[in-house]
Computed example of a mutant assay.
Amino acid sequence: MQHEGTAGNASWYVVHTRPKQEFRALEQLRNQGYECCLPTIQLEKAQRGKLASCTEPLFARYLFIRLDDRTSHWSPIRSTRGVSKMVAFGNRFATVRDDVVDALQKAPLAMQPMFVPGERVAITYGPLAGLEGIFQMKDGEARAMVLIEWMSQPQKLVLAIGTLQKAA
């Protein structure tokens, strides 16, 4: 198993996880003594009609693992819960430079709002479903102010945040 501080040619490798199991794979690999990195980001999402803050992987279905090509035991990785496979190109495993992983570990990733003012949104539910408008601002945790064109006039509406999505 890889332990921090092991001598040799240690490099960061890319692990492909099963869908939505990045955190499980991370925990299981760390429990086996591997040094891992799972960059995350804070996002706003609509949950049960309200905005909620959640932490998600920056790269869906991927995490990084530090392995030494001489002393690390690679065989348990593939059978670890949450892991799909090690990423490889041909017969060579994908590596990531140390400085890139260091930057990802240190970078403060700010909260990403669900919508930003001026963004086009589509109304997905209710009597106005199918209309598009311009997101103006949040109006509390569960509502948003949207500017729509109605009878040749701009109208500001306050709608449930869960009834909106980014327009295509």
Rank of each mutant, 00 (worst) to 15 (best):
Q2A: 03
Q2C: 05
E4T: 04
T6W: 15
T6L: 13
A7V: 01
S11M: 08
Y13V: 10
Y13R: 09
V14E: 00
H16Q: 05
P19Y: 08
R24A: 03
L29E: 02
L29Q: 04
L29Y: 09
R30E: 06
R30H: 11
Y34T: 00
C36L: 11
C37P: 10
Q42N: 04
L43A: 01
E44K: 09
Q47I: 15
G49E: 04
K50A: 10
K50Q: 09
L51S: 01
A52I: 12
C54T: 03
E56K: 13
P57G: 04
P57R: 02
L58Y: 11
F59W: 13
A60W: 12
R61L: 05
L63F: 15
L63P: 12
I65V: 15
I65S: 06
L67G: 03
L67Q: 07
D68G: 14
D69S: 14
R70W: 13
S72G: 08
S75W: 12
P76Y: 09
I77E: 07
R78H: 06
S79A: 11
R81S: 10
V83H: 07
V83Y: 04
K85W: 11
V87W: 14
N91T: 13
R92G: 00
F93M: 10
R97L: 09
V101G: 06
D102N: 13
A103R: 14
A103V: 01
Q105M: 14
P108N: 08
P108S: 06
L109V: 12
A110R: 14
M111T: 02
M114I: 08
F115I: 02
V116M: 12
V116D: 04
P117Y: 10
G118N: 02
R120C: 13
I123Q: 01
Y125P: 00
Y125Q: 07
Y125C: 06
G126D: 01
G126C: 07
P127E: 01
G130H: 05
L131V: 02
E132L: 10
G133Q: 01
G133D: 04
I134R: 03
F135D: 05
Q136K: 14
D139N: 11
E141S: 09
A142H: 09
A144E: 11
L147H: 04
L147D: 06
I148R: 00
E149C: 12
S152E: 00
S152G: 01
Q153G: 00
Q155V: 00
Q155W: 00
L157S: 01
V158T: 11
T163C: 11
T163D: 07
L164G: 02
L164W: 02
Q165T: 07
A168H: 10
A168T: 04
A168P: 14
